[in-house]
Lab assay of single mutants.
Amino acid sequence: MAAAAAAGAGPEMVRGQVFDVGPRYTNLSYIGEGAYGMVCSAYDNVNKVRVAIKKISPFEHQTYCQRTLREIKILLRFRHENIIGINDIIRAPTIEQMKDVYIVQDLMETDLYKLLKTQHLSNDHICYFLYQILRGLKYIHSANVLHRDLKPSNLLLNTTCDLKICDFGLARVADPDHDHTGFLTEYVATRWYRAPEIMLNSKGYTKSIDIWSVGCILAEMLSNRPIFPGKHYLDQLNHILGILGSPSQEDLNCIINLKARNYLLSLPHKNKVPWNRLFPNADSKALDLLDKMLTFNPHKRIEVEQALAHPYLEQYYDPSDEPIAEAPFKFDMELDDLPKEKLKELIFEETARFQPGYRS
């Protein structure tokens, strides 16, 4: 834990890192770190609560700039109880001085990944967590956004079992017609939660990839272990087919990539493993919904509104309290091709509203 900075004593240090967030945020305490930044909790002297502050230093890398800009653009436009918001952003007053960006968010005690390492969940908890994931996802999908990296560590939890989806750095506007060349190379989302079509096709992607990830998360809540822990690309596919069985001819016809289709045709026939054999203690309604989410063919996979209306979630289902976005989200430009200098300018502009004396 960093010592509390005395008023006016300059930035606090946390594990050798400068955290320049005073005077409003003090009493910093280390939480963890990701690929390009550290997260601390801090005391907000204005709202009198502890908050989470993520320090991001992305400006050396085009990919990190892209992810940072995506996350900020999306989260500043989203407003939903099951999606983490941005409360404040701290950065230098000029673009030349801006080396880091500090993002202030609600402090959540833990995440689903940490929880599943230590606790076996009751059916009631599984049901409530799944409902909140789908409630947040309904809003995301209504904005025409794909999260693309749903996994237990991106689901934040607090002691009252509130759940918030975080990390929109890989999110995209849904565009089933656009052929994202190089899709697989830039697709760094965790393999275990990846839909089979991501490994088999490169053309376009749809909201059904997020539903697949939610199915993987439900299976993990039922058993405290990942359902498809593939060691590499082909191993991942083999794990999936080992449980779902061989795809039907109709399902194979959806695979545009001939090499991928021929690979699947070359494999020995596998039978589907019954879900109640894998999860003998699970609620039968939970397994019915799991089956509809972990469907090989993305066109037959359940959609988020149908999933919310499934009998497993009937005690929570309330369409009048499951809000959607006001308007579909649009990125003005494809960020993939922009140089990091341009992305830095866009991050600077996007964060201006939090600067003292800002006038829109």
Rank of each mutant, 00 (worst) to 15 (best):
A3G: 00
A5Q: 11
A6F: 00
A6I: 14
G8Q: 07
G8R: 11
A9K: 09
A9Q: 10
P11L: 11
E12A: 11
M13I: 15
V14I: 10
R15P: 15
G16Y: 04
Q17A: 11
F19N: 14
Y25G: 00
N27C: 13
N27A: 08
L28W: 06
S29E: 03
Y30P: 05
E33R: 08
A35M: 15
A35V: 12
Y36W: 07
S41F: 13
A42S: 14
V46Y: 07
K48Y: 10
K48F: 14
V49Y: 13
V49H: 09
A52D: 13
A52S: 14
I53Y: 04
I53F: 14
Q62G: 12
Q62H: 15
T63F: 13
Y64A: 15
Y64E: 15
C65A: 14
Q66I: 04
K73N: 14
K73C: 07
L75R: 15
R77E: 06
R79M: 09
I83S: 02
I90S: 00
P93S: 12
I95R: 04
I95V: 04
Y102A: 07
Y102S: 04
V104C: 03
D106N: 13
D106Q: 09
D111W: 01
L112C: 07
K114V: 09
L121N: 02
L121I: 11
S122Q: 09
I126H: 08
I126P: 04
Y128H: 00
Y128G: 00
R135F: 04
G136V: 14
K138I: 14
S142F: 08
A143Q: 13
V145E: 15
L146H: 06
R148S: 07
R148Y: 06
D149P: 03
D149Y: 13
L150W: 08
K151A: 02
P152N: 02
N154V: 03
L155R: 00
L157H: 02
N158G: 10
T159H: 12
T160P: 10
C161F: 12
L163T: 03
K164M: 07
K164H: 02
K164D: 06
D167S: 02
A171T: 13
R172E: 07
V173C: 03
A174L: 02
D175H: 05
H178N: 14
T181M: 09
G182P: 08
F183P: 12
T185S: 14
A189Y: 06
Y193A: 05
Y193K: 09
R194N: 03
P196W: 03
E197I: 08
E197N: 07
M199R: 02
S202F: 07
Y205E: 09
T206N: 13
T206K: 08
S208F: 10
S208P: 00
S208I: 04
W212T: 01
S213T: 04
S213R: 15
V214T: 07
E220K: 11
M221S: 05
L222S: 02
N224L: 07
F228A: 01
G230K: 01
H232N: 11
Y233N: 15
L234F: 06
L237Y: 06
I240Q: 10
L241I: 10
G242H: 09
L244V: 09
S248N: 07
Q249V: 07
I255Y: 09
I256G: 09
K259P: 13
A260T: 12
R261Q: 13
N262H: 09
S266L: 01
L267Q: 14
P268H: 14
P268Q: 10
H269V: 06
K270Q: 04
K270A: 03
P274H: 09
N276H: 11
N276C: 07
N281V: 08
A282D: 14
S284L: 12
S284M: 10
A286C: 01
L287C: 02
L287G: 03
L287S: 08
L289K: 01
D291M: 04
K292H: 06
L294Q: 13
T295Q: 05
T295G: 04
K300M: 15
R301K: 11
I302K: 05
V304I: 13
Q306K: 06
L308K: 01
E314Y: 03
D318V: 13
D318C: 08
S320Q: 04
E322Q: 04
E322T: 02
P323F: 01
A325Q: 06
A325M: 00
D336M: 03
D337C: 07
K340E: 09
K344Y: 12
E350C: 01
E350R: 01
F354Y: 13
Q355S: 09
Q355D: 10
